[in-house]
Amino acid sequence: MHPIPRLASLLLALVPAAAGASLQVVTTTDGLAALARDVGGDRVAVTALSHGNQDPHFVDPNPNLAVKLRDADLLVDVGLDLEIGWLPPLVNQSRNAGIQPGNERRFTAASAIRVLDVPTGPVDRSLGDLHPAGNPHFLDDPRRAVEVAQAMAAKLASLDPAGAAGYRARAADFARRIGADEQRWLAALKPFRGQAIIAKHPTVTYLARWAGLRIVGYLEPKPGVEPPPSHLAEMVEVARAQKVRAILVETYYDTRTAALVAKLSGARVASIPGDVGASRTATGYQAYMDEVVKALAGALAP
């Protein structure tokens, strides 16, 4: 074989083959990747830039991620500055004009939903490490997940008109399936509507709102700040007064503090996965929410 064709065939072999898929979709998180797979089916090849067990604030802007973005037909991000620390330089390096913020190949999931915890007054960093644009942890509300999936389908349809009908049908199917699941999940949580809970941080605002639970306190006095013991004593009093039965902590955090408050107030610790892919079994959106609801109901049960 002549050396040049050999080199060419080697390069061709290295180019990832997306057999049959017509769109390369890159998402910033595993949760968004799960939705993209549900909506896109085999017309899309989905790559996530981070894993579900990774803190999405602190992903390394490894230049090889820029190479993935160069080849992206669509970039799906969460928005609300969640990825501010690492996504912008990668998008700049990608040479992909379409995925710049606001352009036609960029879909920011937060744009499809109503955002909670948007500060209404001036904010600064003395309040802890905060999200001035609003709370970006919205995928644990199934209604918002469906809204994101439908908006994503519309975006995919505009980029790939030949598959438009398929995307819409799959999104409708996703909405129907999750709708049915939602009835099941809400039924499992129904006995606990209106109950008070305590969370480690405000990551569960959307979940609590959806499930009809009231968050009456946080284990951390400010986001990312270790609680002094007096704060825990306060939380124990709050938990007793408000009859809190569950203290929510994401699986990758230490549960010692939560366990102390739980023990003294008679509550239980609910260890919930933070995103799709955060545990071995939470492989898709449905499985992830199943785990969340199971952990919640398990902790809230009398």
């Binding site: 067990n53 270790e226 002094p228 955090y253 366990a259 102390l260 892919g277 955060a278």
Partner: peptide
């Protein structure tokens, strides 16, 4: 280990506030 999430720090270090 890429998948399982472990808080290694919490296995070695406590926080002086909650001591089981």
């Amino acid at each position: 280990f890429v998948h399982a999430a472990h808080d290694m720090d919490a296995m070695v270090f406590g926080n002086a506030v909650a001591v089981p």
